[in-house]
Simulated assay, not measured.
Amino acid sequence: MMTPQYRDEAVVGVSDYYSKVIKQKETRSFTMYSFLKRTIDILGSIFGLIMLSPLLIIIAIIIKWEDPKGSVFFYQTRVGKNEKPFRIYKFRSMCSDAEEKLKDLLDKNEVSGAMFKMKDDPRITKVGKFIRRTSIDELPQLFNVLRGEMSLVGPRPPSSREVNEYTKYDKKRLSVTPGCTGLWQVSGRSNLSFKEMVELDLAYIEKKCIWFDIKIILKTVITVISPKGAY
C-alpha cells in the first residue's frame, strides 16, 4: 500500500507532468498564431497597397493641390510593442504646423484620459476631414505593417506624450504589436472614453486568435462604409 508521502509525491509528479503538457500546447498554439498573423499581415499589406495604389495616388495629388507647401505624408513617432518607438506613416490631414498648435488646444480635449480628440479640430484641412472620416488617412500604415512595426489588427499605437500619462495598467495594451484597426476602432472609436479603449484593447489581447482578427477586419470594412465616431 502506498504511504501518504509517496502518494503525495505521485500526485505532485502527475500535476507537474500535466502542467508541462499544457504549457507546451500553449507555446505551440502561440507560435502558430504568431506565424499565421504575420503571414496574413504581409500578404494583406502587399495586396492592399497594390489594389489601393490608384486611390493612394489620387489622395496624394489632392492633398498636394490643397496645400502645395505641405507634405503629402505625416510622420510621427509612436510607441509600439514593449514600448519600442517607431515612425508611423499617414496621409497628412492637418495643417503643416499642427503639432505646434496642439499645446494651445489641449484644454479643449473632448475625451478623458491620455488621448487627445476634438470633433471640430481647427487644424484639420478640408481634404483632411474627408480622409479622416473614411479612415483613408490611415492607409499608408500598410507600409508599417509590411515592415513589421504594426499589424493589421491590434491596439491603436499611442504617441510618446500619451504614454507618459499611462498607468501601469494602461501599459498592458503595449504588450502586443499595435494595429491599423482593432476592437476599439470597430466599437465606437472617438465616441468611447480612453478607459473604455483600454478595456477593449485588453479584452482583445486576452481573446486574440486568427478568427477574431478576421472578424475585426470584416467589421472594419463596415465601419469605413458607415463611419460613425470618426473624427
Rank of each mutant, 00 (worst) to 15 (best):
P157C: 08
T181M: 09
V176Y: 04
D121A: 01
S187L: 13
F143Q: 05
G13K: 13
M150W: 08
I124F: 13
K37T: 06
K103A: 14
C180W: 02
P122Q: 09
L152A: 08
E99P: 00
R38K: 12
G182R: 06
E99V: 00
S175H: 07
K20Q: 15
P4D: 10
I225T: 01
R92H: 06
K81L: 10
D8N: 13
E66I: 04
S175V: 01
T220L: 09
F47V: 06
K90E: 05
L183C: 00
S160E: 15
D67M: 08
K101Y: 12
L106S: 06
L174V: 02
K228I: 14
E99I: 03
G182I: 01
K90G: 01
W184S: 08
K168H: 09
A114H: 07
F143G: 00
V221G: 03
M32F: 15
K81P: 00
A230V: 11
L174H: 04
S96N: 08
L102T: 09
V153F: 02
F116T: 04
L43G: 03
I46Y: 09
V12I: 14
A10K: 12
I61C: 11
A230P: 00
R156V: 03
P178Q: 07
P122T: 02
V186M: 11
Y231N: 07
I222F: 15
K84Q: 13
Y6G: 01
K101Q: 15
K168S: 12
G44Q: 08
W211V: 04
Q141V: 04
K207P: 01
I50N: 10
M197N: 10
Q141P: 00
D107K: 11
L183E: 02
